[in-house]
Design a protein around this nucleic acid. Structure first.
Length: 881
RNA sequence: GGGCAAUUAGCUCAGUCGGUUAGAGCGCCUGCCUCACAUGCAGGAGGUCGAUGGUUCGAGUCCAUUAUUGCCCACCA
């Protein structure tokens, strides 16, 4: 069978994904009688297309799913997408803006329809991208956070928490985005240190010539000031506590009061208090019964409470206020001041602390259980260091503001009665007020935080609140694979809500993978233009190359710096896999049938490569178990390229090409082993490289055999652990390597075959050399080999030392004395350095007295080896004197 | 203001329980189009493991201090 000389990803990728899907291979059944393994996808936002971070995230999930499927589990990878409330609404608003329209022009209903249209578009793209990536999701179970079933889960949870008093309405300061015109939770506000100013403003005391000076970073908020606070222990201001000041610009009298919150050291020690626009001021206002004056419209413009500043934007108002104060001579000084300013995490607009009525989740009771689950190890973070981050946040958690003044999302299932004012909250939309039975009820206009529904994802997708077989089988799920940036947003919420409503954790493991950065280490973002588009990479290098690259870079606990060069590099690995397969298939012959390997027929290198296969299987398996994908990938890479291809395949050539009858059996055995290694390797590679492996498997599988995707994961076989043969092979490789080294250093061209003399007193080693003569000749490009225990080297011989063997290559006329001298000198320096190190160790009584026996024994062996080597090297060196 | 992580070859990174000559890929240098692959083969150069101190017979690995970088969290106006 002849394969093309390079692998063509495009046709394979198309073909196999279609076949997998048509064959229903990704479906995991509740009733398949297999042990469950389940991953729920972190649902991508339907805001656009997938970026390289998604490619990493989904590649890792697919690797785990495919591995577990081959391990014989009922492996369910639950796919779906997130409506992503504020993010998606923003995207559609931007589209409308391009058309010169706003969401208010359309109205709520039409706008929602428009977002659904967008969702179809974006969702379709995402599905396609996941397919391109080879994701083996159980598509027939796909869910969307706004699906009917999931909405019912949301209503059920909301109603339940409300009845329990864990959801309540509160009138307080929240984070407000004046652009999105909605409340945000604390973690949706991103703080950024900005260079600002500290304005010192003079407030005249009422009925006096005296005045005080307050300092503020937000002078415009003074329009809503209703007090000035000092620390009760501040001697400077003892006398004025209880007096009134006249608020400039607004000309109203406000009281000076004492509160421990005030820091005497900061600014002037006097704080202007704006209860409606600062959370601390709000608290102080409550303590001291201050009026709360809201000076802002929802869009961030000054409202009627701002007097002459009405209808100015908050930024213009700041300028104007400062100007006016200056005119009045009340601006004492302006200092530069760096402070953290909150920004909307979706539109980057500066957040305003804003007083409003919102829905909150009382989080503490939920958090306690969630903390405990991780403490007792019911959930394991990998890497473990993330547990600390989790605990830190959970132990300082504050109530969660869940209402959003948006249109896209789950509308809050609370109905207000216009007659009696009662709020009816229930799972199904009520027809009447549950208290007074009035039909005069209105549903709350707000929607829920998008993370409220994603917090239910691990069980809502499996059918909850119904008791479904899927839920029964797959919950708790096995592992959550995600990046650290959504531990608070999502992971913590899933744990809290899972424990609350399922009575069990949502997943056993949380594997936190790295973020991908560009070559300079910067975060990838569209605005910076440094994004690596996974689609383009797949197009250019093939999906398998991209996936393998991502797996290879997925070392735990650090960010990934990705360059296109890397992906290109692993494309060559795909090619290597392809070509080695091609070589094997070309050489098997048409009448080849594979059969069980017979240990007695195996030659030393067969045994060695089988032993290495065993070790590789163990390494790959261990890597997967510990979520060390790079270890698994690296084990496969090294095994395939540097052991199987570089050595084993090269070694089989002598056996395959020899035509004499004597070699027929050896050749047949080699074919069997080549085929065996190929099959197992293709299986081991499948989780990383689903397409090329399926393509190859198709050409090597038995007639009635199914796809590699459902083949049985290789297990190491005890009867193939050949330690002795592996040691012999290492020695053989050393011989070849030393001869090649001499050739390389001496620049002897490949077509110039060398003659080699092995000088050794060891009969055992002589026997090995003799047995492998043909292979040494082929791999080291040698034409004659002599074994001579009493060989006297000529001055024109190049030489090398390995344990009890000296290798001499007579290079009459070819040898470059200077080069050879330099080469030997280098060896001598190295050996001498090692010898000294060993001698020093062994002469140290502390060492010989305290180190374990095997370590000491090891050092002693080294001592004699190096001593002997040095002696031989020096003899060779002496020829040049 | 707290907390976390990183620092190993020119670049990007591995390095398990403290114990062979600290590894890989890319890049670089030399020689090869050898009948699977030039997306290849063979050889080579390149490291006082950020710094200082400590523990230990022995430290890239453990501890302390420190420097630099990155990230997260935090209501001081």
């Amino acid at each position: 069978m002849e394969l093309p000389s390079s692998y063509d990803p495009k046709q394979a990728e198309d073909k196999w994904y279609r076949l997998w899907e048509q064959g229903n291979y990704f479906h995991a059944g509740e009733d398949d009688g297999k042990e469950p393994y389940c991953i729920v996808i972190p649902p991508p936002n339907v805001t656009g297309t997938l970026h390289i971070g998604h490619a990493l995230n989904n590649t890792l999930q697919d690797i785990l799913t495919r591995w577990q499927r081959m391990m014989g589990k009922s492996a369910l990878w639950m796919p779906g997408m997130d409506h992503a409330g504020i993010a998606t609404q923003n995207v559609v608003e931007r589209l409308l803006k391009e058309e010169g329209k706003s969401k208010d022009d359309l109205g709520r209903e039409a706008f929602e329809k428009r977002v659904w249209e967008w969702k179809e578009h974006s969702g379709g793209q995402i599905q396609n991208q996941l397919r391109r990536l080879g994701s083996s999701c159980d598509w027939e179970r796909e869910r969307f956070t706004l699906d009917k079933g999931l909405s019912r889960a949301v209503h059920t949870v909301f109603a339940s928490l409300y009845k329990e008093g864990l959801i309540y309405q509160g009138y307080r300061i929240i984070n407000w985005c004046p652009r999105c015109e909605t409340a945000l939770s604390d973690i949706e506000t991103e703080y950024q240190d900005l260079e600002g100013h500290l304005w010192h403003i003079r407030y005249p005391l009422a009925g006096s010539k005296d005045s005080i000076v307050v300092a503020t970073t937000r002078p415009e908020t003074m329009l809503g000031d209703t007090g000035v606070a000092v620390n009760p222990d501040d001697e400077r201001y003892k006398d004025i506590v209880g007096k009134m000041v006249i608020l400039p610009l607004m000309n109203r009298q406000i009281p000076i009061f004492a509160d421990h919150f005030v820091d005497k050291e900061f600014g002037t020690g006097l704080v202007k208090v704006t209860p409606a626009h600062d959370p601390n001021d709000f608290d102080m206002g409550k303590r001291h019964g201050l009026e709360e004056i809201n000076i802002l419209h929802k869009n961030g413009f000054i409202n009627e409470n701002g007097g002459p500043y009405k209808n100015l934007s908050r930024f213009d108002a700041r300028k104007k206020v400062v100007e006016d104060l200056e005119k009045l001579g009340l601006l004492v000084k302006i200092e530069k001041h760096q402070h953290a300013v909150g920004h909307c995490y979706r539109c980057r607009t500066i957040i305003e602390p804003y007083l409003s009525k919102q829905w909150f989740v009382k989080i503490q009771p939920l958090a306690d259980a969630a903390i405990q689950a991780v403490e007792v190890g019911k959930i394991r973070f990998v890497p473990k260091s993330w547990e600390k981050t989790y605990f830190e946040w959970m132990r300082n958690i504050r109530d969660w503001c869940i209402s959003r003044q948006l249109w896209w999302g789950h509308r809050i299932p609370a109905f207000y009665c216009d007659d009696c004012g009662h709020i009816t909250v229930q799972v199904e939309d009520p027809m009447e007020c549950e208290k007074c039975k009035s039909k005069n009820i209105r549903q709350d206009n707000d929607v829920l935080d998008t993370w409220f529904s994603s917090g239910l994802w691990p069980f809502s997708t499996l059918g909850w609140p119904d008791k479904t077989p899927a839920l029964d089988k797959y919950y708790p799920t096995s592992v959550l694979v995600t990046a650290f940036d959504i531990i608070f947003f999502w992971v913590a919420r899933m744990i809290m809500l899972g424990l609350k409503f399922m009575g069990d954790v949502p997943f056993r493991d949380v594997y936190i993978h790295a973020l991908i950065r560009d070559e300079q280490g910067a975060k990838m973002s569209k605005s910076k233009g440094n994004v690596i588009d996974p689609l383009i990479m797949m197009e250019q290098y093939g999906t398998d190359a991209l996936r393998f690259t991502l797996a290879m870079l997925a070392a735990q606990g650090r960010d990934i710096i990705l360059s296109e060069k890397r992906i290109e590099g692993y494309r060559t690995f795909c090619n290597k896999i392809w070509n080695a397969t091609r070589f094997i298939l070309m050489n098997l012959g048409d009448d080849f049938t594979h059969r069980e390997l017979v240990p007695d027929e195996l030659e030393v290198f067969d045994r060695w490569i089988l032993h290495r296969l065993n070790e590789t299987i163990r390494d790959v398996q261990r890597g997967f178990e510990e979520y060390k994908f790079n270890d698994s990938a690296h084990a496969m890479y090294t095994f395939w390229w540097h052991e199987f291809c570089d050595w084993y395949i090269e070694l089989t050539k002598q056996r395959l090409y020899a035509k004499d009858a004597e070699n027929a059996r050896s050749s047949e055995t080699a074919k069997q082993v080549l085929f065996h290694i190929l099959r197992k390797s293709i299986q081991l590679l499948h989780p990383f490289m689903p397409f090329i492996t399926e393509e190859i498997w198709d050409k090597i599988k038995d007639r009635n055999e199914d796809l590699v995707l459902v083949s049985k994961w290789p297990a190491p076989r005890g009867e193939f652990d050949f330690v002795k043969e592996s040691e012999e092979t290492a020695l053989f490789q050393e011989f070849v390597y030393r001869i090649r080294n001499i050739r390389g250093e001496m620049n002897i061209p490949p077509d110039k075959k060398a003659a080699v003399v092995f000088k050794t007193g060891s009969e055992k080693l002589a026997a090995i050399i003799q047995r492998e003569e043909v292979h040494i000749k082929a791999l080291a490009k040698v034409d004659t080999i002599a074994i001579d225990a009493n060989y006297t080297p000529a001055s024109t011989d190049a030489s090398a030392v390995i344990n009890d063997v000296e290798i001499f290559i007579p290079l009459k006329g070819l040898i470059d004395f200077d080069k050879e001298r330099a080469r030997i000198d280098k060896e001598i320096v190295r050996a001498r350095a090692e010898l000294e190190k060993v001698e020093k160790k062994l002469s140290n009584e502390n060492f010989t007295g305290k180190a374990p026996a095997d370590v000491i024994e090891n050092e002693k062996t080294k001592l004699s080896d190096y001593t002997e080597m040095l002696q031989k090297l020096e003899q060779s060196r002496a020829k040049f004197n």
